[in-house]
């Protein structure tokens, strides 16, 4: 696993927002690597900085965002230092992104076919007459029925699931090496969810495309990812292959998160909630370990420093007191197996 150079490698990345009510320390000490063809799940509660991180990687952050340090190297280029024009060349061609709420993520008054053509025209050297057939081809690839007719459709004429397929067609039109999927199934009904996830998984496998799958749903991530990166309050706390993470979570937060995740046959009573809230990231006195105020194992050391997480390790954790395998058995065995059908594959 250590041998090849990662497709994307984020090192010691930090970012903050300057707002009227103070500086928000949104991301700090982010270390993360994604390899070619790999599907990585980025998991955390809302507000943990998952989306902020993905926007920063693509260089589409809010105006108020300011990078405080670190690198994010993709194909030899540091995305954090790159000029806007260099980033724009990469976006949509090498790295693409899909979002939640697909119905509002598409231009409401432009035909979906034309929106795909806009991306093709921008990045791919497609001759003008071939644009339309390429756009229809892209629609066909995401299993949209009757793509010749749908080419002329407007987003409001399509269902949410169909719009997300269009978004995927748009994102994959130029065959990117990395797809960032930000909560792509939030707001869709369950059957549609599975369809969209299977589609992404299938296309990623077919094109050798890496996927960064952002979700708050650990169960969903377990179903579709090779590896999971857990975030908490702007920190990466743990990173491990799915099976290992579920079998032996090392960060206390991960363990609690797993316990709070419903599996297929779990009873409501068996679920637990995580005590406490995310700390206010505007605070100037944020502890080094941002979980320390919610943690049962906290010691003085936790309030002095935080161990640096090693992005290259197979199972990395940012904790002075990682749980040992077998300690605090987080979930019933049956639950782990049902949650990770592809474990060991």
């Amino acid at each position: 696993m250590n041998a090849p150079i990662p497709l994307l490698e984020v090192r010691d990345f930090g970012l903050e927002f300057r707002t009227r009510s103070g500086t928000v320390h949104a991301l700090a000490d982010i270390n993360l690597a994604i390899h070619k063809g790999e599907t990585v799940g980025l998991v955390g509660e809302s507000g943990s900085g998952k989306s902020v991180l993905s926007y920063a990687i693509l260089g589409i952050s809010d105006r108020a965002a300011r990078v405080t340090g670190g690198t994010a190297v993709f194909g030899g280029l540091d995305l954090l230092q790159a000029r806007e024009s260099e980033l724009a060349d990469i976006r949509g061609r090498e790295v693409s992104m899909i979002f939640q709420n697909p119905r509002t993520a598409l231009n409401p008054i432009r035909k979906i076919g034309r929106q795909i053509e806009d991306v093709l025209k921008r990045h791919a050297a497609v001759p003008g007459i071939a644009l339309k057939s390429r756009a229809i081809e892209a629609l066909r690839e995401v299993n949209i029925p009757d793509p010749e007719r749908r080419y002329h459709a407007y987003p409001f004429e399509l269902s949410g699931g169909m719009c997300q397929r269009v978004m995927i067609a748009l994102a994959l039109a130029c065959k990117p090496a990395l797809l960032v999927a930000d909560e792509p199934t939030t707001g869709l009904d369950v059957t549609t969810q599975a369809g969209i996830m299977d589609l992404i998984k299938g296309l990623a496998a077919a094109h050798q495309m890496a996927t960064l799958f952002i979700t708050h749903d650990l169960g969903l991530a377990a179903d579709y990812c090779d590896r999971i990166v857990v975030m908490h309050a702007g920190h990466v706390v743990e990173s491990a292959p799915v099976a290992q993470l579920f079998a032996a979570p090392r960060h206390p937060y991960t363990a609690q998160l797993i316990r709070a995740t419903p599996a297929r046959d779990s009873l409501l009573g068996a679920l637990s909630s995580i005590p406490g809230n995310l700390p206010d990231l505007r605070r100037e006195d944020l502890p080094p370990c941002r979980f320390s105020e919610r943690c049962l194992n906290v010691t003085a050391q936790c309030c002095e420093s935080l161990p640096r997480i090693d992005a290259d390790a197979t199972h990395a954790v940012a904790c002075w007191h990682p749980l040992l395998a077998g300690e605090a058995q987080p979930v019933a065995k049956a639950q782990v197996e049902s949650a990770i059908p592809e474990a060991g594959a």
């Binding site: 724009a88 976006r91 598409l106 806009d118």
Partner: peptide
Amino acid sequence: FIRTARASGL
């Protein structure tokens, strides 16, 4: 959708 357009590198 403007975010999408930006994310597509337009």
